[in-house]
Amino acid sequence: MDSLELMRSGCWHNGFTNEIFEALIRAEELCFQYNSLSPRQRDSRHDIMRGLIGRIEEPFDIHSPFHCDFGTNITIGPNFVGNYNLTILDEAQVTIGSNVFIGPNVGIYTVIHALDHRQRNEGIMRSKPVTIGDNVWIGAGVTILPGVTIGERAVIGAGSVVTHDIPAGVLAFGNPCKVVRDISDSDTVSDIKE
């Protein structure tokens, strides 16, 4: 196994290798190019994003600035909106479903560093995947930690720290994030003005 495969495997490994470093620099350069372009240069921005992200489906809208560690470990379904300052540390797979809205200043993290300072200083780490289901809304300032799955149709309230799986069809918020209630038909907005 090469160092990138070890990283994605979830086992403890040395993350300070040349191969990992080069992959990080590649992604950082593409993020820099993306974030340097005017939002009016939509075609160029989309070309960069398609070259950065492992798989991304149209339509999508990712506001600048956007940051990721590798990009190649990210899969995004159609009708995605990532608001300002979305950061995805994708040492493991990050799977985002369709019709997902992510608010500003959200961080999605897959990497876990060794607790022992000597090992941490030597680059010992592991990673766990993150999965976000279809039709999920993640509010502003949310932190999603390694190994978490957020079920479809869930809503994560602003400022939450998601430390464990969240089931489908619920409203959850807090630090740590907890299920508050199911989302039901009574949550449907009925007084829409035209």
Score class of each variant (00 low, 15 high):
161 V>A: 11
32 F>G: 08
193 K>Q: 14
97 G>R: 05
73 N>C: 11
145 L>D: 00
9 S>D: 09
146 P>R: 02
110 T>K: 01
159 G>S: 09
127 S>I: 05
77 G>E: 01
114 A>K: 05
60 F>L: 01
85 N>L: 09
151 G>L: 06
103 G>Q: 07
157 G>Q: 07
171 L>Y: 01
45 R>A: 00
94 V>E: 05
88 I>E: 07
90 D>A: 07
79 N>Q: 11
85 N>W: 09
75 T>V: 12
193 K>W: 14
89 L>E: 07
7 M>D: 15
64 S>N: 10
68 C>F: 05
194 E>A: 10
183 I>M: 04
44 S>G: 03
97 G>L: 10
12 W>D: 04
97 G>D: 06
156 I>Q: 06
134 D>F: 14
82 G>I: 08
108 I>M: 06
192 I>Q: 08
93 Q>K: 15
11 C>Y: 13
169 G>W: 12
175 N>G: 09
165 D>Q: 08
168 A>L: 01
117 H>I: 14
175 N>T: 15
188 T>P: 00
130 V>W: 03
94 V>I: 13
137 W>I: 10
187 D>H: 09
78 P>W: 05
84 Y>K: 05
156 I>A: 05
148 V>Y: 05
100 V>Q: 02
150 I>W: 06
180 V>Y: 12
73 N>M: 06
194 E>N: 14
127 S>L: 04
137 W>Q: 04
140 A>C: 14
171 L>I: 04
34 Y>S: 00
14 N>G: 09
120 R>D: 08
118 R>T: 14
51 G>M: 02
159 G>H: 10
172 A>E: 04
4 L>S: 03
4 L>I: 11
182 D>Q: 15
123 G>Q: 02
131 T>D: 03
192 I>K: 10
186 S>C: 08
165 D>S: 11
32 F>W: 14
2 D>V: 05
190 S>H: 14
85 N>V: 03
17 T>A: 12
22 E>G: 05
32 F>C: 07
102 I>H: 07
154 A>P: 06
170 V>T: 04
16 F>N: 11
59 P>D: 00
178 K>Y: 04
194 E>I: 06
54 G>D: 02
71 G>L: 06
19 E>V: 03
61 D>H: 15
101 F>H: 00
11 C>T: 12
171 L>D: 01
87 T>H: 15
47 D>N: 01
80 F>Y: 12
180 V>P: 01
90 D>Y: 10
91 E>Q: 10
143 T>L: 15
148 V>C: 07
6 L>F: 13
102 I>Q: 00
7 M>T: 03
86 L>E: 03
37 L>Y: 04
16 F>L: 13
59 P>S: 05
150 I>L: 04
134 D>M: 11
5 E>W: 01
162 V>G: 02
174 G>T: 09
25 I>F: 13
125 M>K: 11
64 S>E: 10
147 G>C: 07
3 S>Q: 00
173 F>S: 08
192 I>L: 15
28 E>I: 00
189 V>M: 13
4 L>C: 08
57 E>F: 08
15 G>Q: 03
32 F>H: 13
111 V>T: 14
72 T>N: 12
126 R>S: 08
194 E>F: 13
169 G>L: 08
157 G>A: 13
98 S>Y: 11
91 E>M: 13
19 E>D: 02
16 F>T: 00
165 D>E: 05
79 N>G: 02
58 E>N: 12
190 S>T: 15
114 A>S: 10
91 E>V: 13
115 L>A: 12
